[in-house]
C-alpha cells in the first residue's frame, strides 16, 4: 500500500487467503491457535512488548508523576549555554533524575516526552485501525456479497486508493482543513487511505465463501441464504481481520510519525515521536541521544506489532510451516 512510503506492510496477496483457516470459528480453533502462538518465543515476546508500550502510554501521567517531570516543564538550568543549549553531562543528559536525558534547546525531560509521545502514536494508530476495520468490513462484505456493478465500483475505488500517493494527499488535506481537530483529522485520513488493504481481503473471503457448496446446500434445504452466509461469514472473517489489523497498526504508527515529522501531526507543544525526530535533525551530530530514544521506541513499536502479527498469522494458519 502506498503508506509504505513511511513504513511497510507485507503484501498479503489473494492466494494467501487459502492459508486463513476455513470453517466456522470454533472454540478449539482458537485454542489451537493460542497454543501455537504461545510456543513461538518471538511472537510472545512481541506481544509482551506491545502490552508494555500500551501500559506506558496509558499510564503516562502516572509515570511522569513518579519521575516528577511533566512533559512541558523546561529545565534550562541543566542545559549548557556554551554548547548552544546541549544538555550538560553525557549521553544527552541521562541521569538518575532524567532517565532519558533532556531535549536540547528546551530542556524538557525526554522520558516524559516519550511516554506522552507513545500516547499520541498508539491512540491515533489504534483508533484509525478500528475505523479501518469497520469501513473495510462493511465495504468488503458489500462488494463480495452483491457482486455486479456494486463490486466493480468498490473494487475500482479500492485499487485507486491503494495506488494513490497517500502521503501527498494527506499533507494536502491537512493543509486545506486547518480547522478540523488534528487528532480526528489524522485518524480519518489514515483510515481513508488504509481501509482498502483490509477491504480487499474481506471482499475476497466473502466471495470465496459465496461460492462454496454449503451455500448451495443451504439453499437446497430452504434455509435463507443471507442469514446462513452471515452466520458462516463473520466467524471466518475474524481471523483475517485480526491478523491484518495487527499488521495495520504499525503502518499507521509509521504514517502518523511521518506526518508529525513533517510538522503536520499533533500540534506542539504536545510531544510526539515524529516531531522529536524532526527536531533532532538540528542536533544529530552533537546530541545523537535526542534521536536515538524516540527512534528506538518508534522502531520497537512497529517491530513488535509486525512480529506479533506475523506470529498470529502463523499460529492461526492450519497448514503450519
Amino acid at each position: 500500500m502506498s503508506l509504505t512510503s513511511l513504513g511497510a506492510q507485507e503484501p498479503l496477496d489473494d492466494s494467501q487467503l487459502l492459508l486463513l483457516p476455513a470453517g466456522p470459528g470454533s472454540q478449539s480453533a482458537w485454542r489451537v491457535g493460542w497454543t501455537r502462538f504461545r510456543r513461538d518465543p518471538v511472537a510472545l515476546a512481541s506481544l509482551i512488548v506491545i502490552g508494555l508500550l500500551i501500559v506506558m502510554a496509558v499510564l503516562a501521567p502516572v509515570l511522569t508523576a513518579i519521575n516528577g517531570h511533566p512533559p512541558d516543564a523546561e529545565y534550562q538550568n541543566h542545559l549548557d549555554p556554551l554548547l548552544g543549549g546541549l544538555p550538560s553531562g553525557s549521553v544527552g543528559g541521562v541521569s538518575g533524575s532524567f532517565w532519558f536525558g533532556l531535549e536540547p534547546g528546551t530542556g524538557r525531560d525526554l522520558f516524559s516526552m516519550i511516554v506522552y509521545g507513545a500516547r499520541v502514536s498508539l491512540f491515533v494508530s489504534v483508533s484509525a485501525t478500528i475505523v479501518t476495520v469497520v469501513v473495510a468490513t462493511l465495504m468488503g462484505i458489500t462488494a463480495g456479497f452483491f457482486g455486479g456493478w456494486i463490486d466493480t465500483i468498490i473494487s475500482r475505488l479500492m485499487d485507486l486508493l491503494l495506488a494513490f500517493p497517500s502521503l501527498i494527499f494527506m499533507i494536502a488535506l491537512v493543509a486545506v482543513l486547518p480547522s478540523v481537530p488534528r487528532l480526528l483529522l489524522l485518524i480519518i485520513i489514515l483510515s481513508v487511505f488504509g481501509w482498502p488493504y483490509l477491504g480487499r481481503i474481506v471482499r475476497g473471503e466473502t466471495m470465496s465463501l459465496r461460492e462454496r457448496e454449503f451455500v448451495e446446500a443451504a439453499r437446497a434445504m430452504g434455509a435463507p441464504v443471507r442469514y446462513t452466509l452471515l452466520r458462516e461469514l463473520l466467524p471466518n472473517l475474524l481471523t483475517p481481520i485480526i491478523v491484518t489489523s495487527m499488521l495495520t497498526v504499525p503502518t499507521y504508527i509509521t504514517a502518523e510519525a511521518g506526518l508529525s515529522f513533517l510538522g503536520l501531526g499533533i500540534e506542539p507543544p504536545t510531544p510526539s515521536w515524529g516531531s522529536m525526530l524532526a527536531n533532532s535533525l538540528n542536533w544529530y551530530a552533537t546530541d545523537p541521544w535526542y534521536f536515538i530514544f524516540p527512534g528506538f521506541f518508534l522502531f520497537l513499536a512497529v517491530f513488535s506489532f509486525n512480529m506479533a502479527g506475523d506470529g498470529l498469522q502463523r499460529a492461526l494458519d492450519p497448514r503450519g510451516d
Binding site: 502506498s2 503508506l3 512510503s5 513511511l6 503484501p11 495506488a163 497517500s166 502521503l167 501527498i168 513533517l262
Partner: peptide
Amino acid sequence: ITILGMDFGGLLGGAVIVETV
C-alpha cells in the same frame, strides 16, 4: 511487478520525506 504498482505512490511520499531530511 504487480506490487510495484502499489508502491509508486509511496515512492513519491518517501521522496518528500527524504527531501525534507
